[in-house]
Nucleic acid binder design. Structure first.
Lengths: 154, 154, 154, 154
DNA sequence: TTTT
DNA sequence: TTTT
């Protein structure tokens, strides 16, 4: 019965992360990630096919995303699929699938600036590379968790 | 721009595959796969959380699924995320996400029978393990396989 | 600079886990895992090609392995590649690559017995499925960790 | 018995690819890839731990690597583990593990040049993005690609 | 031997 | 809506 539900994505953000702060030092970030596949059709024309993914990050990860990611950023993402379902006003079943991010890594060169609200001198804040990889995390000692076998609330 | 869109699942089928045959030797199978995550809540109670995934397989793969998979089968799946979107009659945007399967592997012991419509002597048809792993494959103008330095697996 | 080093394996154990207990509640398990790939050669003969992997698990994970895994067990493994190198007595560089396991999941039906030293009524000990999935872990509250961004000593 | 043997890496090349041309349009490329993991030790000092991987690519893939990859290139790699073993002159068993690459994707911005032997105006050769993603491919009796519902990507 |  |  124990299962595996794993997603690996490499793509670019369609816009800056949207971060909401909740009570108790909690935060959630929503991001839209494009993964583009390129192939030739039977006439030899190159076709790009883009898939858009809704990413969700929490807490320390959300804050790192806010600080370092922005529209266009290329990232590697690991996460799991979660589908929300509900009934709409017409009583119809509705579904929405998102990727709950467990860790991500920034790709490509150094960021040329930072999150959308950041002054572009945040290069320094970026230094050492504490943000280059983020795992689902929280406490200030940089505790790293993954949410498979424990009592995390998600 | 080149991206990665990869899903890895291990779970059990919620029902037998539903296979439709289309014109020209094409076939498509729909499957529902449950991946269950188990964790302890803060009171130490074990909680099972199940996520259901819509899988789609085509052609040779669909036929193998029909023949060898059934309700309860445990499989390893590799695929990619595809989200269909459309407008419903109320003009609202609707979304449905599925996993386009690129390869799968049957897990656990030998199948005790076979697909739901199969005589249970299909054990023989199963022999060696021709069905144990399936890659996306099919008609010759659409040949797509994913292995490497060898002859083709089917 | 942040990188990704990820291995995903599904295979069977070639023998029972070998577990060593070290000072301070530490334990390490060595396992040999076979992943077999099946293909047809150009004469249509089915060929099985088996790759053997050296797995290493630590602490809580090692103990779970000892208790529930044995020769023949089919498991799903996630981990990372680590290559040890040293000079042998002739002054030659020697290399040995192993998989540091970060999590694993038992596949197939319930185990029919248990680790090699276990009474075969361990079915009960196995109950619900507390052991079915293991992450790199430690403390008794079932704390789950992965060792990417922290100060774990391995 | 069917198994899974999958490696996913993101890292940087330690040097330009070494490509050898063999008889019959065959080619093989050797690459060294560094994956670096960053963590804080218990004193809060950031530690970088680098793992080096031997990559092997064949045929079309090797040629693309020669043309577009060079020292420092950041790539995403998918492949499988292969361990060669042999006896050395002392009759000792020797082992060497490498990653047989099945597909790779260049990460980060546009290449600023090209393979080590290429004129740096190869930007044009790079155009559209024929090299951005490569799957295992090659001679017609050994055609192996890994994508899905489309025409072939090269 | 890479990268930040 | 990203990227090349």
């Amino acid at each position: 019965m124990a299962g595996v539900n794993k997603v690996i994505l490499v793509g670019n953000l369609g816009s800056d992360p949207e971060v909401k702060y909740l009570e108790g030092d909690k935060a959630v970030a929503k991001l839209r990630l494009a993964t583009t596949e390129s192939y030739k059709d039977r006439n030899g024309n190159r076709i790009d096919q883009t898939e858009w993914h809704d990413l969700e990050m929490w807490d320390g990860q959300a804050k790192i995303a806010e600080q370092y990611l922005k529209k266009g950023s290329q990232i590697y993402v690991e996460g799991k699929i979660k589908t929300d379902s509900w009934q709409d006003e017409q009583g119809q079943n509705r579904y929405r699938t998102k990727i709950r991010v467990l860790s991500f890594t920034m790709l490509g060169g150094k960021p040329d600036g930072a999150g959308s609200n950041q002054p572009s001198n945040s290069q320094q804040a970026y230094s050492p590379k504490p943000a280059a990889t983020s795992n689902t995390s929280g406490s200030s000692q940089d505790l790293v968790l993954d949410d498979s076998d424990d009592d995390l609330p998600f």
